[in-house]
């Protein structure tokens, strides 16, 4: 299995996270996203005409879009069906809802990080404000989860793709100048995600540490 990958990409990190949780081994094909803009080059357009990473190549089956890749990997490599709970329509719907939420954090929180770290031209104040709106909603959701004994974005005993999809943009948000101080439930949830067996880090993400 090959992942077209870039270490600093939050979207690639999602896929690497799930591969780690599922215990699936893979090879990283590093795309020089910055500064080479290799994902926008002619050669890469052959793999993804949209010019985005990540792209997964599983023995010839080529799939683009981080969330699509998450759905594919969970459906194929999670025999317990816990990450993508297809047998439970309500939980499945909730997973899709929070994955869509993660699309919104990608265009806000993640964009501020690209602005700060890689010099992308966004109206960063507007994106930060929009990210704060999203994080308020997520924090409230998780706060009520804590009151009712639910650790994860989608209620249930085990984490789902919703947690994988939302995690990178939240845990990296402070790189984009979005202070997480107002979202203690969200911060505590990142601590729980870090304790899922198979968790992997990336630059800017600390592992969970017990002294």
């Amino acid at each position: 299995m090959k992942l077209y990958d870039f270490v600093l990409s939050a979207n690639c990190y999602k896929v690497r996270l799930l591969l780690g949780f599922l215990g699936v081994s893979y090879d990283s094909e590093v795309i020089d996203f910055h500064p080479g803009k290799e994902h926008k080059g002619e050669a890469f357009r052959l793999i993804n005409p949209l010019g985005h990473i990540p792209v997964l190549d599983d023995d010839g089956y080529v799939l683009r879009d981080a969330h699509a890749i998450l759905v594919y990997l969970a459906s194929r490599y999670d025999p317990g069906r816990s990450w993508y709970p297809v047998t439970d329509p309500e939980r499945l719907g909730s997973v899709a809802q929070w994955m869509a939420f993660a699309d919104a954090t990608a265009s806000t929180a993640s964009a501020t990080r690209l602005h700060v770290n890689l010099g992308y031209d966004f109206d960063v104040d507007e994106r930060r404000a929009a990210a704060h709106e999203l994080f308020r909603v997520a924090d409230e959701h998780l706060w009520f989860g804590e009151r009712t004994g639910n650790d994860w974005f989608v209620p249930g005993p085990l984490p789902t793709l919703a947690d994988v999809a939302v995690f990178p943009d939240v845990v990296l948000a402070e790189e984009g100048g979005i202070d997480l101080m107002d979202y203690p439930s969200l911060v505590r949830w990142t601590g729980r995600v870090k304790q899922i067996p198979g968790f992997s880090v990336m630059p800017g993400v600390f592992p969970f540490e017990r002294a």
């Binding site: 804590e146 101080m181 203690p184 601590g191 017990r210």
Partner: peptide
């Protein structure tokens, strides 16, 4: 009291 649970450090201001 929900913020100062066991083995966690809470950031306040």
């Amino acid at each position: 009291e929900h913020d100062v649970i066991a083995r966690v450090v809470f950031r306040g201001q």
